[in-house]
Design a protein around this nucleic acid. Structure first.
Lengths: 191, 191
DNA sequence: ACCTGAACACCGTTCAAGT
DNA sequence: ACCTGAACACCGTTCAAGT
């Protein structure tokens, strides 16, 4: 359960704490991000934490920023390499749905448990809707229509994430999920 | 800020605490539901709380149950009185979007901050998707198609809630929102 | 510069004692 | 049966003291 502490560097960086916090959120939600609980995982004392961060809120801010870089910027960068807009969109859903735990952070941010999360959430949302607008523009929709489609696609996307989290057995899995997504994308991209 | 305490009944019921907790979540999120902070609002001591509830988790359970009754059962009951399926669906979106704070509890439940919330979330989700499946069946879709449409509609619904919470200025407001919803419902109900 | 360990505050929880 | 107030535990935060 306890992650092995790297022996290669004696000194800790803020990123070490943020990464530990990110893992902790995926495992046990926001409330599991406790300085006292994290300290032994990174191999330091509670007091040490307050050298790197002003408080727990600052840690969460750094954690959300880390997630933003890994899960929005990096993915959009990959997708921008795909010329065909329909394939680009399909790939996005494939990436997003490949990890059953994806959406955990989005859920935490949306719950408004922490104001600093809202800033990141706004930035990520804007970025993603922009990306989707680009996809629909490339599909030949005029700007206003592309924007509307992008918005609807993103709500479908968010809703699917949310539904998967609650795990009601309503969201299809495996091949059925692929079929479902294919059908949804058909509906969304039809002129 | 502090709600006036009713003088008409000296004794408190669990519902008094649950209602106070529900209000508190809407105002300040889950973390604002603190026994110590709630006690003066209902006009009792912390100790009194533990006569009515085993712990904070039990209060949250009761709070979620209260919300379920008010926001799912009551609304579905109203909607079931509308014969025309398209109007029924439109009315659902109207109710859901009329309160800008609607979706707060859904967000809290989805964040999995509390396991007991998941039970309620699953029940509510199942109930709502069943309701939507009925709408699409009434529109003439066969069972499997009705189910798929219901699922897609519910993800659009959840996503819209979620987006509104983050308040990015991406979701249209006022008449534009009505137009947007109308367009979305058109897309969703088209055979 | 970076870290430790003790101290304190806050809030969840318990409980003996009151009505 | 229902409530109070004091006590304790847990974790966020501070800080004087160490390297």
């Amino acid at each position: 359960m306890v992650a092995a502490v790297s022996k290669t560097k004696a000194r800790l960086t803020p990123e070490d704490w943020a990464q530990a916090a990110l893992d902790s959120i995926a495992e046990g939600g926001l409330s599991s991000v406790a300085v006292e609980a994290l300290a032994p995982k990174v191999g330091a004392s509670k007091g040490s934490f307050y050298w790197h961060f002003q408080d727990r809120a600052a840690l969460l801010e750094a954690t959300f920023a880390l997630w933003e870089k890994a899960k929005t910027e990096a993915i959009i960068e990959e997708l921008d390499g795909i010329a065909d807009p329909r394939r680009r969109l399909r790939r996005l859903f494939a990436i997003a749905l490949s990890n059953p735990r994806a959406g955990r952070i989005e859920a935490v941010l949306s719950s408004q448990a922490h104001p600093q999360g809202m800033t990141v959430l706004r930035r990520v949302t804007t970025r993603r809707v922009e990306f989707l607008t680009g996809v629909f523009a490339d599909l030949g929709f005029d700007p206003a229509a592309a924007r509307r489609r992008a918005l609807m696609t993103y709500t479908v996307f968010l809703g699917l994430f949310s539904l998967r989290q609650s795990d009601v057995g309503i969201v299809p899995t495996g091949a059925a999920l692929d079929d479902y997504v294919e059908g949804v994308l058909d509906t969304l991209t039809r002129p």
